[in-house]
Design a binder for these strands. Sequence first.
DNA 1: TTTTATCTTGAGTAAAATACTCGGTTTTAA
DNA 2: TTAAAACCGAGTATTTTACTCAAGATAAAA
Lengths: 153, 153
Amino acid sequence: MRLSTRGYYGLKAMFDLAQNYGSHPITLKSVAERQRISESYLEQLMAMLRKTGLVKSFRGAQGGYILAREPARITAGDVVRALEGPIAPVYCVNEEEPRECDEVDYCITRTVWLRVRDGITGILDSINLADLCLEAEKVRQTGRGEHIKLNKY
Amino acid sequence: MRLSTRGYYGLKAMFDLAQNYGSHPITLKSVAERQRISESYLEQLMAMLRKTGLVKSFRGAQGGYILAREPARITAGDVVRALEGPIAPVYCVNEEEPRECDEVDYCITRTVWLRVRDGITGILDSINLADLCLEAEKVRQTGRGEHIKLNKY
DNA sequence: TTTTATCTTGAGTAAAATACTCGGTTTTAA
DNA sequence: TTAAAACCGAGTATTTTACTCAAGATAAAA
């Protein structure tokens, strides 16, 4: 039950762009450094994000990437779907093309995966990049203590 | 963001055993047939379920498997964890051994995965095999129609 | 006691996915 | 014109997945 590093790195990168939203384009290199992602690997991820319309790129000197729309209008779900495809804990409850099995109509265990999927999408779709920036702001102000208390690890 | 077929098949198999709870041991072969799982593959899964104490086995003729405790006391989470290990959408929020990164204290994207993880575990841990049997009973009585209406696919 | 049904174990494997790397090309601001 | 960037395609080592198979151990039934 794991995400690949694509979604993991991808969200970090998008969060990085969100924190720089409104200024000049941000170079891939600087994102890679700040977020500790391999530069060449990040290239691939950015290509995917660009193709799905989540970021815009500017080539040439002084070029780089910016978010294609306001941080508040990009959700974690958008990012994960762009990089990992439709969310589906198992094939038969794929968001886009649920792979049919013969028993779809009455398969009981399927309802479990359906609930899991809806749980995941509900959470991912409810978090946008602006939220994350706000949270980051809060952490910066109050120090790290509170944040640690909130989350077990 | 996908489960492997282990969790998928495994829950089917456990549900099958739950529906036969209280009677004689159920052979792996019959479970495999009903649930359309490869017999030799299911062998492996049952071995894992046995080692984690979710099923008991009886060897020899008339042997087979039974649930190690009442269906109501086995959750979908138990099954998934037995077959796929601790639930962790990304390593840094692994249920058991969160793999540390240098930024644990203040990493913001991490809070996303934490929420996703807790969403998943919350759902999986809230569903037990007795629930599923009840639901199956309901479907058998009312026919399939209602069930289809409830779930989009 | 022999047969047969069943679980048990360990090894092997083909295919896919993952997580990258690398070298070269194109574009554009300075 | 030059240097800084994005862009592109190919390649690859490693890991995971989803199995298969064969031989052994055990116990009930004949």
